[in-house]
């Protein structure tokens, strides 16, 4: 129990004093994860919508693969990205291993299937609801997709959010491809792993509370944005 208490004290102290290292680490966590979520959403949301609306030959197989990829163990993703980006790997010439870019790549691979899958379910349900109406109203395919994306935007935001939640708390893959380098690729989760390794539970818990607080803060913010939007006009 005393360790949790120590952790809380450490966390409060770190935040109150605006600890520059904590600030840097937090900012880096956000940069990496937000970038990854933006890229993964740009791929995953339209992919999900396409899978819901368009019938094509390998649609079912694609969905099955997508769902399977959702359960991808991050450590394995990390290992594969590591081998790809290593100087002796196929993409070694770019020198990306142990950089934030490598971490973003790993996170994009981990969360794109998740975002696409949730988006697919949301758009599929909405499409089932709207199908007859939109056919009856003689809409074009473009109008259908735009309408579904717009009317389903809150569900889609949830998809991106789920991706954010998974990415911000992920440690296995980014530890491997980022290397947890101080001032370069150290983020909240890898810093926690490091402090735990040192037996410094106080600081580790402190960082953990910051991580939890951050996740809650971002979720609440987006929830709040969604609500104000729905209360006003569309």
């Amino acid at each position: 129990m005393s360790e949790i208490w120590e952790g809380m004290k450490a966390a409060v102290w770190l935040i109150v004093t605006l600890d520059p290292e904590l600030f840097d680490i937090t900012l880096r966590s956000l940069q990496v994860t937000v970038t990854a979520v933006v890229i993964a959403s740009a791929i995953g949301l339209p992919l999900g919508a396409l899978l819901a609306i368009q019938r094509f030959r390998y649609r079912r197989a694609t969905i099955a693969v997508l769902n399977a990829l959702m359960g991808l163990p991050p450590v394995v993703v990390g290992l594969i990205v590591y081998l790809m980006l290593s100087r002796s790997g196929p993409f070694g010439v770019f020198g990306l291993l142990f950089t934030p870019t490598a971490m973003i790549i790993a996170q994009v691979i981990i969360i794109t299937p998740l975002i696409a899958s949730i988006a697919h379910q949301a758009i599929r349900d909405l499409w089932a609801e709207y199908h007859d109406l939109m056919i009856s109203m003689n809409t074009t395919k473009g109008q259908r997709i735009r309408t579904l994306l717009w009317d389903g935007r809150r569900a889609l935001m949830t998809a991106s959010l789920a991706g954010f939640g998974r990415a911000i708390g992920e440690v296995g893959a980014i530890m491997i491809v980022g290397g947890n380098i101080d001032n370069a690729t150290r983020v909240l989760t890898t810093a926690i792993a490091l402090e735990t390794g040192k037996g410094d539970f106080g600081l580790a818990l402190g960082l953990g509370f910051v991580l939890i607080g951050l996740a809650i803060f971002v979720n609440l913010t987006i929830h709040w944005v969604g609500r104000t939007e729905s209360e006003g006009r569309w």
Partner: peptide
């Protein structure tokens, strides 16, 4: 010089050197 440390076991440290990482 800014030295970026990769903190690993000796085994992996050697492999990182072998791969040129």
């Amino acid at each position: 010089i800014t030295v970026e440390l990769l903190v690993v076991g000796t085994g992996q440290a050697l492999r990182l050197g072998e791969a040129g990482d």
